[in-house]
């Protein structure tokens, strides 16, 4: 058996209870290997998923489903640098994905 994370979908249920991603512009900070990204990205208009760890981003890009290639853009970048390059009012949702600790 391969390792399965959250097959019960409790994280996804909580996420959709707190947010409506329909056609939303989403920034995910600390996306890691994209585990959470896949859960909501098909609902969003566009997802920008960033992480400061290069290997995590490389892994996320390798496992990006074909159906999400137009929607999801991964970036290996620290948040501070990303923020300095990004316009105000760019996103409907910002997700701090297990990234404050």
């Amino acid at each position: 058996m391969a390792v399965r994370t959250d097959p019960e979908g409790t994280e996804k249920v909580s996420l959709f209870d707190l947010a409506d991603f329909t056609d939303a512009e989403v920034l995910e900070i600390g996306c890691g290997d994209g585990r959470l990204t896949w859960r909501y990205a098909d609902k969003a208009a566009r997802v920008t998923a960033i992480d400061a760890f290069e290997e995590a981003i490389a892994r996320a890009e390798r496992s990006l489903p074909d159906g999400l290639r137009e929607t999801v853009r991964f970036q290996h970048i620290a948040f501070e640098e990303f923020a300095a390059r990004t316009d105000a009012d760019a996103f409907d949702y910002t997700i701090l994905s297990w990234s404050l600790c």
Binding site: A19, A90, F91, D92, Y93, T94, L96, S97
Partner: peptide, 14 residues
């Protein structure tokens, strides 16, 4: 970066 109508979602261990 967040629009005035936007939301911040924060996830961390309990």
């Amino acid at each position: 970066m967040l629009r005035p109508s936007g939301h911040l979602l924060e996830i961390h261990p309990a």
